[in-house]
Design a protein around this nucleic acid. Sequence first.
DNA 1: TCATCGATAGAAAGCGCTTGCTACGGGTGT
DNA 2: ACACCCGTAGCAAGCGCTTTCTATCGATGA
Lengths: 355, 355
Amino acid sequence: MTVTLADVAARARVSPATVSRVLNGNYPVAASTRERVLRAVDDLDYVLNGPASALAAATSDLVGILVNDIADPFFGIMAGAAQTEIGGPGDGSGRAGGEKLAIVCNTGGSPERELTYLTLLQRQRAAAVVLTGGAVEDPAHQAAMSAKLAKLADAGTRVVLCGRPPLPDSEAVVAALAFDNRGGGRRLTEHLLSLGHRRIGYVAGPLERTTTRHRLEGHRDAMRAAGLAGDEERLTVHGPYDRRSGYDATHELLRREPEVTAVVAANDTVALGASAAIRDRGLRIPEDISVAGFDDLPFSVDAVPALTTVRLPLFEAGARAGRLAMGKEKPPPGGIATIAAELMVRGSTAPPRVG
Amino acid sequence: MTVTLADVAARARVSPATVSRVLNGNYPVAASTRERVLRAVDDLDYVLNGPASALAAATSDLVGILVNDIADPFFGIMAGAAQTEIGGPGDGSGRAGGEKLAIVCNTGGSPERELTYLTLLQRQRAAAVVLTGGAVEDPAHQAAMSAKLAKLADAGTRVVLCGRPPLPDSEAVVAALAFDNRGGGRRLTEHLLSLGHRRIGYVAGPLERTTTRHRLEGHRDAMRAAGLAGDEERLTVHGPYDRRSGYDATHELLRREPEVTAVVAANDTVALGASAAIRDRGLRIPEDISVAGFDDLPFSVDAVPALTTVRLPLFEAGARAGRLAMGKEKPPPGGIATIAAELMVRGSTAPPRVG
DNA sequence: TCATCGATAGAAAGCGCTTGCTACGGGTGT
DNA sequence: ACACCCGTAGCAAGCGCTTTCTATCGATGA
């Protein structure tokens, strides 16, 4: 048998209501009574029944964090930061308070899973939901998401987007923190152009993601501004955001166009694969080919040569999203904030060989 | 207002009981009735109230996965793999079944948080809990953990350890999958010894973790077997499992003992930091100093030179833990399985310079 | 033809907690 | 001294679902 509130009440010689109030600390209870109750709780090793409490109170202390790929530090860093702010246990006192249980849900990048997790969180009457990472640009899915988020918001769940562009309409969302992927992509390519590169290959992410599109658009904006439009299709290869894809795509790219002097990757992980491919072809970085990434994940500075990339303040953004989800921070005006991306020039980019 | 079971029942002109049975599919319902109910569910956009259902049924479909550091791929990979098996949404049908909601909880390596998360999961009446990563070796904490796990098991929660040594007593645990950290550490050092290294530095993890201790013991076993005992203390530096720590510790190590010809790191991330420190001192890898890591995380093969390390089958182990948690796989005999660690020799280790 | 049985559906009793409202006592103002 | 009020504690009505037990009905077998 599990111990119930009533058991504790009996042992403390008070009513269940009083025990509940002691535990929730949201109602005055005389110090002596409180102490008696707490002792009984301890004696009996009582653990609150979460579902029962959530049912009665019509709220739960769950906060969901949705990520595309939990094995990718890009998401891990944001999720970890968010969780820090959301509290979960132990971030401070322990006993009382605004503490919520942060749980991270791995969608694997699948739109259906994303939706299903949202439903599950809705079932659990989650207090808040943080969606991280780029969205899929399928209209049907977007509509479904909007509808689902609206429903969540209706039910009192605070929805925050982190590293994801704001939804078309949605008043449902407390705040949207979007990375300036387009600007970052543009500045990165401008850097390459200023070094003298003209034939720049682009190893892009999966076609239908906003992140992919924005970074690519930034790149192309820069190319166009330099009067280098035209060859985009041939110089772009799409693939998943992983190392393997970067490796394969770069081989493909160099086969298509051996004259490439620089390769821009969709993110740092892809850049690692790209670098491996370039080396496997007997080329040196950056002497023969420059390589650049995106995100500035922790390992990027340790690559050899250190990777030129675009720094996204993942931790800060995740933390802010967490605070927003908890209502600890005022949403930005209009509920939308764009988070700047900073160009990090390191050793993997250099002027192209002359000739 | 949210839609309730009763609303659906009214619209389908059946009793709430029938709706519940249709939704749970655990009781015969006439096809025509079922259809009517399902249409009503759809029409009303009904979403089951999780807490209510968990309360009434005295079980929930939550499965907790505890990790030390969600930003570390070591844990991300295991957690992701486990989640794949646990189902969460969308791994298959969608409607029915054994699907559970996998949620990952980030303890940040703190014993208190670990305990608190366990309590929270206990509150939620979690169906299963997977604990990943090394344990902290504080007796008080271990006792508390045992007690807590026993209580969870009592309440019907399936507990699985993944990459963590079995608990002293515990019948509470369904299964424990332990990595052969000691064997891996030994083989790694044997490899270095066979190359001719004699002065080997060790950048260890935090002192009180089992993972740290086992890897270090393996290393020292190998050293001792080679007749090289004695200098352990001076050649070992402890620190957290992160890049920064690897960097700092390696500088410290090389200051203490400039004659070191090889550095073994507690894991690959630390090895990255160690490599950076070595390079910053103007030394080459592996010509001047060999470097080795542990885990074989995805980026290790892309390090330059590629990192010699010990491969842990993180994905497979995580997946197996997931299956065990779901009761989809029979526990190993005695509930304990040791998972082999495979030496991966790559470019970062080579014979020491002569002289 | 009548009792029996199998297949379905409904009634109703909780699951363990929260919370609005009521009850009780002693201190306060006049 | 009397009416009042504040500080506490208890009562009891749910929260929305599951599940046991009972009721119904048409089909079946003797």
